[in-house]
Design a protein around this nucleic acid. Structure first.
Lengths: 113, 113
DNA sequence: TTGACTCTTCCAAAATTCTCGAAATATTGA
DNA sequence: TCAATATTTCGAGAATTTTGGAAGAGTCAA
């Protein structure tokens, strides 16, 4: 991930509805959720949601597949991983005291450990 | 950190120059760097940089203090920590296989461990 | 094939963000 | 006080993003 990719992903997430959708999909898991269900869950219009999902997809943060009449969206865990890695890259430049809290949160964020 | 805070922080970072500045400050460490030095390091105009630093400060991602004629900016590590925590919150909803790579990167990102 | 369902694309107006020049503010040294 | 240095604030034009209505397309069941 380079700087441009990161800006793209951050821009995609820097939006109330899109962040909500993304976090919903992260929570839902790799099986994903149909666009219509997402719209109902978040209370957004179908076309607006579609545009927002398209932005997230463009940033690689979600993927989609058709299943019958529905289109299923799922979180792009690998991209999320890459973004987090990029954001933490070079942190604290070797200064352990500062980095410690970040390491801590990283550990704590490992929700399934 | 609530959703609005997260959107604010993500918006602040979703900008090529601001992301560069933030990462520079993260690298520099808690002692920070004078606005003028940041401008020189990133090749931005003083007033544009000032506006961008203001956005970052508004999101809590940097703090500032005056030192003589200079104003020193430093990364807000705690806010960064909170943002990363928010982004990883509820991830994978208990599904260890999916979360594992995230835990891995989190560990790897703990640069000073 | 027709109709219902699901989702996307197209479009244009409204809102927001970005950038730069010019002027203002704060600090220091002579 | 005056000049130099360091940074911010103001203002406006340019560019980008966001939104919702209307229409277009793919899928399925009868």
């Amino acid at each position: 991930m380079d700087s441009q990719d990161a800006v793209g992903a951050l821009s995609a997430l820097a939006h109330e509805s899109r962040l909500e959708v993304f976090r919903l999909l992260v929570k839902v898991g790799p099986d994903g959720m149909a666009a219509g269900d997402i719209a109902r869950a978040t209370g957004s219009l179908a076309n607006t949601l579609s545009a927002n999902l398209n932005v997230l997809a463009g940033a690689g943060l979600v993927s989609s597949r058709r299943e019958g009449r529905s289109i299923i969206y799922a979180a792009g865990y690998e991209r999320m991983r890459a973004l987090l890695a990029f954001l933490m890259e070079d942190c604290c430049s070797g200064n352990a005291e500062i980095c410690a809290p970040l390491a801590l949160i990283a550990e704590r964020a490992a929700c399934c450990a």
